[in-house]
Amino acid sequence: MTEETGISRQDSTFPRYAFFLGCVMPVKMPWAESAIMKSLPLLEIDLTYVTRSTCCPRAGVWISVDKRVWLTLAAYNLLQAEHAGRDLMASCNGCYVTLYEANKTLKEDPAELRMVNEYLKTTNNHYNASIRVRHLLEVLYEDVGIDVIRRKAHRIPLRVALHPGCHMRIFEDGRLVRYFTELTATLVDEVVHYEAEQICCGLQANLADREFATYERAKEKFDAIKKLDPDALVIVCSGCYDQFERALKILEKDIGYRFDIPVIHLAELLALSLGIGPDEFGMRLLRTSPVERIIEKWEGGMG
């Protein structure tokens, strides 16, 4: 029985989710998408895609420009999962916060839901606000359960650092950060912590001041992580990944800066630990730095 949902696993069939991809993952992180789509069914999660999905959209931009846009475009994505009869699952912290908060508003405020449905009517759509929005971490920790993962997964002999990202702190009790840390610690030998772990990736700041976002945020983190020389930097947020990739390109071009530690998604560790080979989910493709050291250690651990 999970505290948060009150749902006992034996009370239901497999949890059913529609996976919301967002803008970044399907284009820049196919390894993460593939690892999620291949791993979760092995953990008895019934997973399909949210089809016809569009940008979440970015709450940080739209709430300040026009709140109607945030709520209506978020509802457009939410109703795609509702049509499929599934709760929505997101991995990107930014998409999760946008969709979670919009869904909460639409569930709690009938006037806002009416307003949104008036606009949705122009596209022959309607949203009933009947679904839940869940983070990948909630699905893994609460629906699957850390004990099940511990039983099914082979620990990988890796030493990794974490980047939770700001929006992972959406709940006051900090449970998503705890889930992220505990899940990672279940999959690898060691999680190393560093002072700048809570610093933002710089994504939002990038809209206002690219130099500040690159040098005072992303580089601060990279410098702190390099000192620990972990095998990987683990993330779950596509927005943070996008910012890291952008910052690394700028830093390399401007000052010849190198960050040879691969930035990987938690689902890649999950896939490897469940015995899914790196080439089955495209682990070597489109990387900011090579992942060979991870693969070698995984092969050693499996042997």
Binding site: L21, P26, V27, P30, W31, E33, S34, M37, K38, Y49, T51, R52, S53, T54, D279, E280, F281, G282, L285
Partner: peptide, 10 residues
């Protein structure tokens, strides 16, 4: 190569 459809269902 990652075992996905070339165009995502977005």
């Amino acid at each position: 190569k990652a075992g996905l459809d070339p165009v995502p269902p977005t």
